[in-house]
Amino acid sequence: MIPADPAEREALAGEYVLGTLTASEARGIERAMDTDDALREAVLAWEARLAPLTEFAQPETPPPGLWERIAGALDPPAAAAPAPAPRPSGIWRIWALGASAVAAALAALLLLSPKPEPRLTTVLLTQGDQPAWLVEADRGALRLAALNPRPLPPDRVMQIWALPPGATAPTSLGLIPAGEGRLTVAPEGVRPEPGMLIEITLEPPGGSPAGQPTGPVLFVGRLVVATGS
């Protein structure tokens, strides 16, 4: 039972956030917050006021494998989403998995400025899953913007590649001029389409001599439709 007295309500909201209420008192506050907007606001205000105190907790690396446990609890194997239909082989397939999902994250962000026609976008990620390049298809062209520019080894260049769904070999989309954080490429013979993989590799000056990627993959992502809802 949540009291009517304002001072008492305020104190209970603070104690709920502090964690000093008993289990049943805490449940009572949580239930009441569903319908009692003022109480909910009081609790949120206390969360905001006291939040800096969390810095008193010493940061500590969680045990290895915890993310996998969380992922397993969120999406038990039986309920896993269906796999995308055609899959390219080798390294492309490995990269396709995580990258497409983060491209979907970007799609969600683009809802903030919905446009009537479907747009193809992706975020190219590093090996460590850090976002590195934003890619957006604009009719037949691709616009790229660096999110987090990093210096390159002096004698190396970045080369962009595209692998349309079903294709077995990537097509070069050209080199990224040194120090360039924004560029548009208009590939010949390759049209941006959903599911197309985009990757950037590290190559010798002038680009890969083999017509195929020869250096390490720096960034990769897969184009998806940024849908509104």
């Binding site: 995580g98 979907a104 899953d129």
Partner: peptide
């Protein structure tokens, strides 16, 4: 925002 849309990769980040 992406997590809210069900994006597991965003949650992983």
């Amino acid at each position: 925002a992406a997590v809210a849309a069900g994006d597991r990769a965003a949650l992983r980040i």
